[in-house]
């Protein structure tokens, strides 16, 4: 039998393997149809009804609101949840025992969740535009599309950190469920954060999607009134907080991996 001399894992290959596994499981498991295909249709219809006739830009509000509603769960929580599933299935131990650092497995999942989140966003767009009978007029469609992808990455950065918590403790799902609604409202997924009580704003600004979503609305909705510092600083804040989250995630993953080996809690579920 060949020995593993000369074998070497690579970051890219491990990340691609993780994406491939996500796709295979997505295709194999019909339950994914609900959040990724059916829910966006419902969200689109509800948001259209909710925002209809609320102003000249109601269509963009509806698309963004429903789109984020559909995507935030896919992208943010999907990333963490998959690690929780690894615990339940007992695949966390063999995966961590492989030479590849677990961070790259999570990275693959995050990237896949970004893609699947974008598919959800696209479904929302198609539904809302179909019901309305016309597409919204965006001032800068290309910039808007780029920002849209960036919003997904900000969600993914939080998801990566959440995945580390899932590695650390089997109670991560409990923490996630408690924070789910607060995070959804607090980061302005459906409504702009400035509409919330002022005291919530400093907390909301700790999360990258808050900044990114505000920037997206500034870009896509003429006359939008969000944070007073405007689009440019929103973008700077989003990039900075995302970088901080990714940096913290990388560091936390290394520490968490060490800590779970100390605690001996990898097999708990």
């Amino acid at each position: 039998m060949a020995t593993p001399q000369g074998y070497g894992w690579s970051r890219g290959r491990s990340t691609l393997a993780s994406i491939r596994l996500c796709v295979l499981q997505f295709v194999a498991d019909p339950q994914w149809l609900i959040p990724s295909m059916i829910a966006p249709v419902i969200f689109g219809l509800v948001a259209f009804g909710l925002f209809a006739n609320s102003g000249p830009n109601f269509l963009v509000y509806a698309i963004l609101g429903a789109g984020m509603m559909s995507m935030w769960g896919q992208t943010l929580y999907g990333s963490g949840w998959a690690t929780g599933q690894d615990r339940v299935w007992g695949t966390l131990e063999p995966t961590l025992q492989a030479p590849t650092p677990y961070l790259y497995v999570v990275l693959g999942r995050v990237l896949w969740n970004v893609v699947s989140g974008l598919i959800g966003g696209l479904i929302v767009y198609v539904v809302v535009v179909t019901v309305n009978g016309a597409a919204p007029t965006l001032p800068n469609p290309a910039e808007f599309a780029l920002l849209f992808v960036f919003v997904m990455l900000t969600l993914a950065s939080v998801g990566t950190l959440l995945a580390a918590v899932y590695v650390y403790t089997r109670f991560a799902g409990f923490i996630q469920n408690i924070g789910e609604f607060a995070f959804y409202v607090g980061t302005g997924c459906m409504f702009p954060v400035v509409l919330l009580p002022f005291w919530t704003n400093p907390i909301a600004l700790l999360f990258p999607p808050t900044w990114a979503l505000d920037a997206l609305r500034y870009n896509g909705i003429p006359g939008y009134v969000g944070f007073s510092w405007g689009f440019g600083w929103d973008l700077v804040g989003a990039i900075a907080t995302t970088a901080v989250y990714l940096g913290i995630s990388t560091s936390v993953f290394r520490r968490v991996e060490r800590q779970v080996l100390e605690k001996g809690s990898l097999g708990d579920y």
């Binding site: 290959r13 491990s14 393997a17 491939r20 995966t95």
Partner: peptide, 8 residues
């Protein structure tokens, strides 16, 4: 296949 990739 998945684990073969993780093991390089």
């Amino acid at each position: 296949r998945y684990f073969a990739d993780l093991y390089g």
